[in-house]
Design a protein around this nucleic acid. Structure first.
Length: 720
DNA sequence: TACTATTTAATTTTT
DNA sequence: TTAAATAGTA
């Protein structure tokens, strides 16, 4: 029993949480306050000091990465492997339960998991089948609706159309979608959680078993739980369970996908004996950065309340750069990156963050020009690539003939003469006889089709059957290897011209090696192939398989959550971009944006740059914008303006429209992008100017009144 | 069936 | 601007 080892590196608050008695615990852990550390040490404490078996712990995270990290850290702290400790994502654990109890859950033994891309395709197909106009009923919106209901734990029969015909249609589509999934043995992400919840809810014995087994529940990123996840935890905890949840209400940035911070309050109601510990000491950032973050987040109303502090140095001030436009902004960032690298720092220690992905473009161009290696986070993941999904679809069809989703994906890929018309006939048959496409194909090939189409379909059916026979008994990586060639996929992509096809073939080969290094869980009863397929759906893999290279990190502020960097740039800090236009009107939306800003600021360890552009090209149009309101929420004392906003009346490179028009407006201190106020029209931004002296006119874009041309000498504009 | 023109819309993302 | 989806053409 090595208590010191577990406790020595902890501060008082952390230690209090780690050594807490067996009561429900709510740990409010600020950014950089050692949240994961507390979870890891708590697990070690329970096992090593309280003497609990690892089997009686359940640890839940949101990402596979977090789960893997937690397991690794627990093992290294304890100095032994903890194989029987259940650590995983909500989805991973739900999946495990459903595999184990598929019968009770009402699923076929070899049910398949579909990802959101599969889900969307399935919905599109469904609309076609039902002959519903996908212009009026947008597949994405239907997908969103279905997932939102499932996230709330609601089945179609729980929903009331409220007399709204469009809602009634949505509910009907939800119902049809469920039927299709049911028939094909398909389970989407939200369904995993919903089923797992219903499994326990409706099986007293099972629930009892798991309640007895898992008395201690450790939950990471608790503020991100959605309704069904919370309900699942609540159910498992019952009255005697001891949930230990860690989260930060100020870092809740996923409301739009169902996360509810309110669960932090709900938790205290559901578990009245809860003790609360706040972790406010920060080990990551300088005092300046923390003060800035505290000041910004203080503008939010609905908070638990928390103030980060450090006993470290004050650090350098936050640099704010007002760029002329997005190019200038990018040049500035790259200049600072150059300095950073020239001073011998690691490129990977620098991160450029932005609100939306599209903003990476300009930065990337600049970085390429400057020959600075960089890496953009958040592209397609390995298992999401089209060619990989094609290959997986073959494997899935081999394992599960009823999987229509896979069937449709590959029936004519590579092209084998089964065109849209033929597929249409199959669909009609399948629908009329409510049978899977596979059966429909067989039935139709023997009568309804003409010779050529029938042959093509028969050839496809035989191909799959033959592959299934050939692959039986082979080892997993041999199966994958066989399938990528026998399916014709490799040849198909080889023919694709350019580098693209080459990469795709490489990816297919990479899939074989992924299969080779795949280690199945010995406790699972599935076939290795089925387990691999589940793994592929549940863990999409890294974005880039790139080897370790020292690269500047580019990513959205969302994907930066949980990471830290010595040098951070927050770019595009303009009202309309960040906070984003679509969140600006709604107070709760604005608060979420502000939390995102808080997340962004607290990523920085030493140096933080904040940049914005006065003019930015958006959707091909030049827009003028004002600095993000969040910048003005940072106390001036912590800010150093890098380039005081000099009076530049025109862009250097954009030539003046005419020799006579450039000057006069500037004479009056008016310049493009200048904010002005008009007695009647209110506030606006100068877009354009022309004429001289008494005739000088400016075009102003007013926030409420729209765009107007005004004669300067009459308009009586106030500069702001 | 594959390629090309036209239209349309444009946060954030993990499982 | 541009990427993706759709419609139209060879």
């Amino acid at each position: 029993m090595d208590v010191t080892r577990i406790l020595e590196s902890l501060n008082d608050a952390q230690r209090q949480a780690v050594t807490a008695p067996a009561v429900p615990m709510l740990v409010i852990a600020g950014a950089g306050s050692g949240k994961t550390r507390v979870l890891v040490h708590r697990a070690a404490w329970l096992i090593d000091v309280e003497g609990l078996s690892p089997q009686s712990l359940l640890a839940v995270t949101f990402t596979n990465k977090a789960a893997a990290e937690m397991r690794g850290r627990i093992e290294s702290l304890l100095g032994m492997p903890v194989n029987h400790l259940w650590i995983g994502t909500f989805h991973g654990l739900a999946h495990r339960l459903l595999r184990r109890h598929w019968r009770e859950a009402g699923l076929p033994q070899n049910f398949q998991i579909i990802d959101s891309d599969d889900q969307l395709r399935l919905i599109k197909r469904l609309l076609k089948n039902l002959e519903i106009d996908d212009g009026r009923w947008v597949p994405r919106e239907i997908q969103y609706f279905i997932n939102a209901q499932k996230d709330e734990g609601l089945r179609p029969q729980h929903l009331d159309d409220e007399g709204d015909p469009s809602r009634r249609q949505m509910i009907a589509l939800y119902k049809s979608y469920e039927e299709v999934c049911e028939r094909g043995g398909l389970v989407d992400f939200a369904e995993l959680l919903l089923r797992a919840h219903e499994l326990w809810r409706d099986n007293a014995e099972l629930l009892h078993h798991y309640r007895r087994r898992f008395r201690h529940l450790l939950v990471d990123e608790f503020q991100d739980t959605n309704a069904i996840q919370y309900a699942w935890l609540r159910l498992l905890a019952g009255n005697d369970g001891v949930p230990f949840v860690v989260g930060d209400d100020d870092q809740s940035i996923y409301r739009w996908r169902g996360a509810r911070v309110e669960h932090i309050h709900q938790f205290q109601k559901d578990f009245p004996k809860t003790s609360i510990v706040k972790l406010e000491q920060n080990y990551r950032s300088t005092a300046t950065i923390l003060n800035a973050a505290n000041a910004v987040i203080a503008n939010n109303n609905s908070r638990m309340g928390k103030n980060l502090w450090t006993d470290g140095a004050e650090g350098e001030s936050i640099k704010v750069y007002a760029a002329y436009n997005e190019r200038d902004e990018s040049d500035f960032v790259i200049g600072r990156l150059r300095d950073w690298i020239d001073q011998g720092n690691l490129r990977a220690d620098a991160a450029v963050l932005y609100r939306s992905n599209a903003q990476s473009r300009v930065l990337e161009e600049g970085l390429i020009n400057a020959r600075i290696p960089y890496r953009v986070y958040g592209g397609l993941r390995f298992f999401e690539r089209a060619e990989i999904k094609d290959a997986l679809a073959y494997l899935r069809l081999i394992s599960h003939r009823d999987d229509d989703s896979s069937f449709e994906r590959i029936v004519n890929r590579p092209t084998r003469g089964i065109g849209a018309r033929t597929v249409e006939i199959m669909r009609a048959y399948a629908r009329a006889n409510s049978c899977p496409m596979w059966r429909a194909a067989g039935a139709i090939a023997s009568d309804a089709l003409n010779g050529r189409a029938a042959n093509a379909v028969l050839a496809f059916l035989n191909l799959i059957e033959k592959m299934a026979r050939d692959v039986a008994g082979l080892d997993l990586q041999e199966q994958v290897d066989h399938v990528i060639y026998a399916s014709g996929l490799v040849d198909f992509f080889k023919k694709e011209k350019g580098e693209k096809g080459e990469t795709r073939v490489e990816n297919l080969l990479e899939l074989v090696s992924a299969a080779k290094s795949f280690e199945p869980d010995p406790a699972e009863e599935m076939s290795k192939l089925d387990e691999f397929l589940s793994h592929a759906a549940l863990e999409a893999g890294e974005g880039q398989a790139d080897a370790w290279e020292d690269c500047v990190q580019l990513m959205t502020m969302h994907s930066a959550k949980g990471l830290e960097f010595p040098l951070v740039f927050l770019t595009g800090m303009e009202d309309g971009l960040f906070p984003h236009q679509r969140s600006i009107a709604d107070p709760s939306g604005l608060e979420e944006e502000r939390r995102l800003c808080y997340v962004g600021i607290t990523r920085a360890k030493q140096t933080l740059y904040v940049t914005y552009a006065e003019q930015r090209r958006l959707h091909g149009m030049d827009n003028f914008s004002q600095p993000s309101r969040f910048i003005s929420e940072i106390p001036a004392a912590h800010i150093e303006e890098i380039r005081p906003r000099v009076q530049v009346s025109r862009p250097m490179r954009a030539p003046a429209r005419s020799a006579t028009s450039a000057l006069p407006a500037a004479e009056m201190g008016v310049r493009l992008g200048q904010r002005v106020r008009h007695g009647k029209f209110g506030d606006g931004v100068i877009l354009n100017c022309e004429g001289q002296g008494a005739h000088a006119r400016v075009e102003v874009n007013f926030e409420t009144a729209g765009t107007k041309w005004l004669v300067l000498s009459y308009a009586n504009l106030d500069l702001m």
